[in-house]
Design a binder for these strands. Structure first.
Lengths: 318, 318
DNA sequence: TATATTTGTGTAACTGGTTACGTAATTTAT
DNA sequence: ATAAATTACGTAACCAGTTACACAAATATA
């Protein structure tokens, strides 16, 4: 199909569907050719029964990877043709035990030649290709089981969006954003405390002039995330990471992660030995972000914030 | 799927279907994720319209490889969502000219990011495989266009069946089969002539003792085909190939071809310079078989058979 | 110029699968 | 021992495609 060269691989599904259709179409004719009164769609069911054992509907469904109603329907059709029999399991009244009839088993022997012929034909085609369709499908099945296409697309999306985010140093014009973004989440989860007002209303005086830094994440030139690195007056810790806030509207762009990385880089460039932070365990995404950034829990420090119930630190390489 | 390792490639269709389904399922969710009010199945139609041109239903169907009713339905659905408009072609009243509306074009621009993300995700998967699914599909499409799976299976069938056929020299126990097989087709198409009775009733006297040969094709030890090589008393020709008959029940096993080849080999081993034959053009499969064996038409020889209206010869390498 | 054929389209019915739902039998938990 | 959860299965409705058919418009042919 010329068409698929234009669309590119986004039309993978469509292309697969068409190839599928072409092949199953021929399959039906092949059964007719060999004078076997069977439909291609019965094949998987027929195959698992061909060893002669009784099986339940759901067991068959699971084995061939169909839904159970699909198997149920197929069994109904095969029964009408006299290929299978059903009988209730005495031990378990829910189970419907299905097995091939004598006629079914007879068809099974007759069908063998057909199967070898089809196999030879398919192998002959495969031999003419440089790319192995069968193995490629196996690989795709495996990879999609590891991680769905959907979640891979989400990942690609995030990565691309993250590329549109730039982290810049604080400027006076971001003052209102710095306050607003923080107030948004603090008010939502807790209540504003005195220490909050102090640093949010006057960041220049209370953070920057004291040797701290503020970074701003811009998305389309719009400030959507902020984070501060506050100089600490403490023998154990050099800097505190605090006042991190990301707009809920800008979620899914890894902005928190990017800000965190930038803050760590900033601290490192300032020669810090470590970074300290305070948070609350009800902020689950935040805690997991801190973990991802490498912070580890520590205990036993005093804090001016009521909402703090967890403290973490990140030692930096010297 | 474990299952497919057991069935082997005969379940190629089933396996393709399942992979298709898994992928299109995710596709639907991806549209939802990007907040695009579109269905995956619309994509091919949407794509061909996205350049902005008006197109007819059938033109779209042809381009994307669907049936026209499929496109007709999709257009109906897209129209309901306000993505396309239809308008009758003034020049040709049958044509229904379809194009994207402003809303459709707007979605087209919005969708671009999604397409790149999907593409990145698919490319990322491809990069992890050692067998290229996309290219493999392309090869299969090409090869199936050259020759359908069905006809390839027929070929494999023939080849296998031909392997079960053995060509042996005449023995007295095949006398009745030699007559019966020939009588069957002669009576069907023409009527038995005096010369027929002579050679069919007494093959030993009239063919073998005069320096001729008879070969018999056995399928499961059953004689299903015969052919005679009759010594000619003629300055131009050494042998005549005649009395070739194959049971209709044993068709599709290339028995005629195998008999013909064996007869040619026999003549060659006898040092013949050429082989001559007589036939009738209403026996189309026979004539095409003779052509396949290398016989060429000749003209202007007398013949004792009323039914003969074509004569052929095959020069043999010296 | 009249008639036959081809072309463009829509509708209906089918196909091979699915999910949703209901029900009965069995198993688990309290 | 009873209630709750799980399991096996069938039925119904849906979905994304198909083929079959009908019909009108356009084109080719006699």
């Amino acid at each position: 199909m010329e068409f698929f060269n234009k669309t590119g691989k986004v039309a993978l599904g469509s292309r697969l569907r068409m190839l599928t259709e072409k092949i199953t179409e021929d399959a039906a004719q092949i059964y007719r050719l060999y004078n076997v009164d069977m439909q291609p769609k019965w094949f998987p069911v027929f195959y698992v029964l061909s060893v002669g054992e009784e099986k339940t509907i759901t067991a068959i469904a699971k084995e061939i990877g169909h839904s159970h109603p699909s198997v149920s329907k197929i069994i109904g059709e095969m029964k009408k043709k006299g290929l299978v029999t059903e009988k209730k399991d005495k031990a378990d009244g829910r189970r419907n035990m299905v097995s091939l009839t004598k006629k079914g088993l007879e068809i099974n022997t007759r069908i063998q030649d057909q199967l070898t012929d089809v196999n030879t034909a398919i192998e002959a085609i495969s031999a003419q290709t440089t790319h192995d369709l069968w193995k490629a499908m196996e690989e795709w099945e495996y990879l999609l089981e590891q991680q769905s296409l959907l979640s891979r697309v989400v990942e690609a999306h995030k990565k691309r969006e993250a590329g549109n985010v730039v982290i810049v140093d604080y400027q006076p014009k971001y003052k209102s954003a710095f306050k607003a973004l923080n107030e948004e989440w603090i008010a939502r989860w807790f209540k504003m405390e005195a220490a909050d007002h102090k640093s949010l209303d006057h960041p220049e005086e209370n953070i920057l002039k004291k040797g701290g830094h503020i970074l701003v994440a811009l998305y389309n030139d719009e400030p959507v995330g902020v984070c501060a690195l506050i100089k600490m007056d403490d023998p154990d810790y050099d800097y505190e990471m605090a006042k991190m806030a990301v707009s809920p509207k800008a979620q899914g762009k890894s902005i928190g992660f990017l800000l965190g990385q930038a803050i760590i880089a900033k601290a490192t460039s300032l020669g810090a030995r470590n970074i300290y932070l305070e948070s609350n365990t009800i902020l689950k995404p935040a805690i997991s972000l801190y973990n991802k950034l490498g912070f580890k829990k520590v205990t036993g420090r005093a804090t001016p914030y009521e909402r703090c119930n967890i403290q973490m630190e990140l030692p930096l390489p010297v």
